[in-house]
């Protein structure tokens, strides 16, 4: 799609450079479902999918709803000898509350709930105008940059495995039962992974730069 009017834009426009090993290639857009891979370090450079934009938006909306619901409803419930205690994810995250532990509480809450939530909201903000063939939203570039920078700090799936470990630790001590939020959180983890694997960074950057020729 670039070849026809490639001369009017600088020659560098037609290049793509691998961010991992600096190998340089002539830009050639792969077809939907195909992938452009760096021959030197095997980094996936471009991986477009058909209607990925709409699917990602759908997934992101679902994740936002699930995070909101999962943080409010009871997550796990414990009972032993007639006493019981039900906690939500917010309770779990904010359990560190003495002195410097408060910092830890805020970080935990951030990693589990806040970062995934903000990432999804930013993705929606960036992608909705692009998918609807509108000009990019204001500050869309900055928004997508933040969304990408947050990617390693979104730790919902690690928290899910942490739950499994904690359950086994408690099992000998008391009976544990799952609340509705537990299942929501499970679905959420899967959806976040789907979201990340559908999203092709290069396609988003490209459509932000040239809104019309998606």
């Amino acid at each position: 799609m670039f070849r026809e009017d490639g001369i009017s834009r600088g020659p560098l426009e037609g290049l793509i450079v691998c961010p991992v090993c600096d190998a340089t290639y002539q830009l050639q857009r792969p077809k939907n479902g195909e992938r452009a891979v760096c021959t030197r370090c095997h980094k996936v450079l471009i991986a477009p999918r058909r209607k990925a934009g709409m699917q990602i938006i759908a997934v992101a909306v679902a994740v936002v709803v699930l995070i909101t619901a999962a943080s409010v409803f009871p997550f796990l419930e414990i009972s032993a000898a007639g006493r019981s205690n039900a906690v939500s994810i917010i309770d779990a995250a904010l359990s560190f509350t003495q002195g410097p532990m408060l910092v830890l509480a805020l970080m935990t809450a951030g990693f589990i709930l806040f970062v995934p939530l903000v990432r999804m909201l930013l993705t929606l903000y960036v992608l909705i105008p692009v998918v609807l063939d509108r000009p990019p939203a204001r500050h869309a570039i900055r928004a997508f940059r933040w969304a990408e920078a947050m990617r390693p700090w979104s730790m919902a799936e690690i928290f899910a495995l942490g739950c499994a470990v904690a359950l086994v630790k408690v099992a000998g001590l008391a009976t544990v039962s799952f609340g509705p939020a537990f299942w929501m959180f499970g679905a959420l983890v899967v959806l976040v992974i789907v979201h990340d694997s559908f999203l092709c960074k290069w396609s988003v950057w490209n459509s932000l730069e040239h809104p019309k020729e998606r």
Binding site: L76, I78, A80, A81, R83, S84, N85, V87, D91, A92, A93, L94, S95, F96, L104, T108, F111, I112, P152, W153, M155, I158, F159, L161, G162, C163, V165, A166, K169, V170, L173, A174, V176
Partner: peptide, 24 residues
């Protein structure tokens, strides 16, 4: 690297969940 955080999350879940006054 991120997976090392699992221990922190286990501690968070345990200390929120296991608050049975008098028992444990």
């Amino acid at each position: 690297g991120r997976w090392s955080m699992i221990d922190i999350f286990v501690v968070a879940i345990l200390s929120a969940l296991v608050q049975l006054k008098g028992l444990a």
